[in-house]
Design a protein around this nucleic acid. Sequence first.
DNA 1: ATATAGTTTAACTATTTAGTTAAAAATATC
DNA 2: GATATTTTTAACTAAATAGTTAAACTATAT
Lengths: 209, 209
Amino acid sequence: MTRNNKQNATALKIRTTATEMFAEKGYDGTIMDELTVRSGVNKASIYYHFQDKSNLYEQCLTHLFANVADAVINATELATPGTPKLKAFVKTFAKLANATPAMPAILMREIASGGHNMPVTARHQMQRLLSTLKFILDTEDPNPNFEPINALTPHFMIIGSLCFYLTSQPMRDRIESTEKIDPTLEEFTQQLIDILQSGLIKKTKGGLT
Amino acid sequence: MTRNNKQNATALKIRTTATEMFAEKGYDGTIMDELTVRSGVNKASIYYHFQDKSNLYEQCLTHLFANVADAVINATELATPGTPKLKAFVKTFAKLANATPAMPAILMREIASGGHNMPVTARHQMQRLLSTLKFILDTEDPNPNFEPINALTPHFMIIGSLCFYLTSQPMRDRIESTEKIDPTLEEFTQQLIDILQSGLIKKTKGGLT
DNA sequence: ATATAGTTTAACTATTTAGTTAAAAATATC
DNA sequence: GATATTTTTAACTAAATAGTTAAACTATAT
């Protein structure tokens, strides 16, 4: 293992563990001494690689959100006529959020606190996602005739519901004792897609009051 | 002002300010000394009325969530044939969450951290909301023929999207410089209702893939 | 008016926590 | 393989923060 690899390994270990902890306990709830224990990296090493806690947080968030938007946007662009873009959008976001549970947790905390500690880069990624959804709904391809609508509503219906579903899973698991009634992520995602597609598509007969 | 009134006034002032702060900064981000400044109540008075920070937090959350479920459930029960229950559910929750912005913020933080510091009473209120929505979708009155679906999906579509919309408002206000494109809460709520009603209603022709 | 219980106050204490230091160890460069 | 550079280490410091104390104040009942 070369020095560069080792440096990368240490810094990566710090960032990975820190991201987990920030997601679990929030910025203020994350204690640097606990990070040294959980990461197995000495405190001064942390401060060597990342100048201070706030910088560490910033780097964690930047890395965390960096690939999400790319992956989702990429997946929607690859969507073939047989695979509607909206479906690709939802499915890819769901898959990524599930694989990286720190992302929805930190996103929820950050939004709840007005995004005051959210790095601009991270915020930009979320805005890119919204723009992409807006484009999908406007160009209505390959699904014809989406009703004109402000994209913010379906956007938050997707992001919001999936973040709530995923982050509430441990809580729900603790509650349900007798019957296992909750939908799986796949079921949840499919229902979400179905409702959105039926709800967004141009209707000949008007909806209910 | 009697002594009892004064006691109530002080305790109420503490709880109100603390709830605001917990919503803004989270549990660990809320500093007791800052609470004394913002509430104008001496520190020892806080510890007199509430034994410690964790107890104060518990009481804040209990009070915060206590009336939300009641109000929403009450509104759905009062829904007349002309006012669908689903619409009443969404509109009432939206109204309450908007009037009490601490509620969605704290809910998001708590769910993000696995609900480990959420008082059972507060959690029960959220479960009551879910049960109510489940009942609405099952009894399909006065809207006929809701497609059988696990209520968790529309539940999180409602709660999740509204929490995201409301708590992200300060963040969005900071960004948008040129054009004011975001929907108002009323518009957002109406779109949400429309999509859900169209998406949940029993379809003769099957939806898209 | 006074005794009593409830309430508020300013100053204090103990602990936790972010961040530092200087030396040792590992690694690269010559 | 000696020398310079980067990285890691344990012990330390300064500041922030939760919680305490004992005295002063207030309202109410006797």
